[in-house]
Amino acid sequence: MQARLISFLKLFLPFSIILFFIQFALVNYVFKIELYYSTLAIYAFHFLATFLIFLFLVFVHKTFSDKTGFAFMACSLLKMLAAVLFLLPVMLNDTPNPFQDIVAFFIPYFLFLIFETIYAVKLINTK
């Protein structure tokens, strides 16, 4: 388990940091957009959710290896629910342009989801 965690973090940390700085530069310096949530808060959500999902998938794969795919689908559903709850204040508040906030959240959401999916498939294919 420790070897999987280290190999995951070797790619996940640089992936997260690079994406964070790209979005931070685009939001604050290129487009100069004021968002409801800071870029740091958005990436903290994505980083924490993805890391916890990976840890849970490794645990499920270790104990019930045939249920890893189902666990990934359940975690993805819960992450989507958490994303809606995270964005609920943006949608309920009188923010001037909530579309920008939603796009700033969901572009990294799908990039992190692709990253999760790649590692979930790697876990499922290991025998």
Rank of each mutant, 00 (worst) to 15 (best):
M1N: 10
R4K: 15
L5G: 05
S7P: 00
S7T: 09
S7K: 15
K10H: 05
L11F: 13
F12T: 04
L13D: 04
P14G: 09
I17C: 10
L19R: 08
L19G: 13
F21D: 04
Q23Y: 02
F24R: 10
A25D: 10
A25V: 02
L26I: 03
L26F: 11
L26Y: 11
L26A: 13
V27E: 10
V27K: 14
N28L: 07
F31V: 00
K32P: 00
K32R: 14
E34T: 06
L35F: 04
L35Y: 05
Y36F: 15
T39K: 08
T39V: 14
T39N: 15
L40C: 01
L40S: 09
I42N: 12
I42M: 14
Y43G: 04
Y43V: 01
Y43Q: 05
A44W: 02
A44P: 00
F45Y: 06
H46L: 11
H46C: 03
L48N: 11
A49P: 03
A49R: 02
T50G: 11
F51Q: 07
L52T: 02
L52P: 01
I53K: 14
I53V: 13
L55D: 04
L55T: 01
F56Y: 12
L57M: 14
V58G: 07
V60M: 14
H61F: 07
H61K: 15
H61L: 02
T63M: 08
D66M: 10
K67W: 08
T68A: 14
T68V: 14
G69L: 14
F70G: 13
F70R: 11
M73Q: 09
M73I: 07
C75D: 04
L77P: 00
L77R: 03
M80A: 15
M80Q: 02
M80G: 11
M80T: 11
M80N: 02
L81T: 12
A82C: 05
V84F: 15
L87I: 00
P89G: 09
V90D: 04
V90C: 02
M91F: 07
M91C: 01
M91P: 00
M91R: 07
L92F: 07
D94V: 00
T95I: 13
P96Y: 13
P98T: 06
P98F: 13
Q100H: 13
F106K: 07
F106L: 12
P108Y: 05
Y109K: 10
F110N: 06
F110A: 08
L113Q: 08
F115M: 09
F115E: 08
E116C: 03
T117C: 12
T117A: 15
Y119F: 15
Y119W: 15
Y119G: 01
V121Y: 13
K122P: 00
L123K: 08
N125W: 05
N125Q: 10
K127H: 08
